[in-house]
């Protein structure tokens, strides 16, 4: 069974590696460059999130992350609900070499 993301912005594309905080910033694996949540017309690749790939993630990592909810998700059924609500789900984050400098000592 496939779950196909319908509204295809970068955010909805499986090859989009989002920034961990600003979801409209991301890295496009296909093009090898930073993108700013562009509409799909700019590229001809189509990416899908499948139930199979999702379940293999839960079997290996045990979690996916919802950028919209700013929270990890630990159960497959819940992840499906977030996807249905067009939340940005990921397990990978765009490399950010400067965020660490912006964090204070917090403990």
């Amino acid at each position: 069974m496939y779950y196909i993301v319908m509204n295809m912005n970068c955010e909805d594309c499986g090859r989009y590696i989002p920034h961990s905080v600003y979801k409209y910033i991301g890295f496009c694996e296909e093009q090898g460059k930073v993108v700013f949540n562009e509409p799909p017309t700019n590229c001809d690749t189509v990416s899908k999130t499948t139930m199979d790939s999702l379940s293999s993630v839960f079997g290996s990592l045990g979690w996916v992350y919802c950028i919209d909810c700013k929270a990890p998700i630990f159960e497959m059924e819940e992840a499906v609900k977030h996807i249905a609500s067009h939340h940005l789900i990921t397990t990978r984050f765009m490399y950010d070499s400067v965020a660490a400098e912006e964090v204070g000592a917090v403990s």
Partner: peptide, 20 residues
């Protein structure tokens, strides 16, 4: 309780394994 570890934190896998 909202899990406020950094997105992608290595701890996610630890709590996930604990839950299971």
């Amino acid at each position: 309780v909202w899990n406020d570890w950094c997105p992608g934190c290595g701890n996610f896998g630890i709590v996930a394994a604990m839950y299971q």
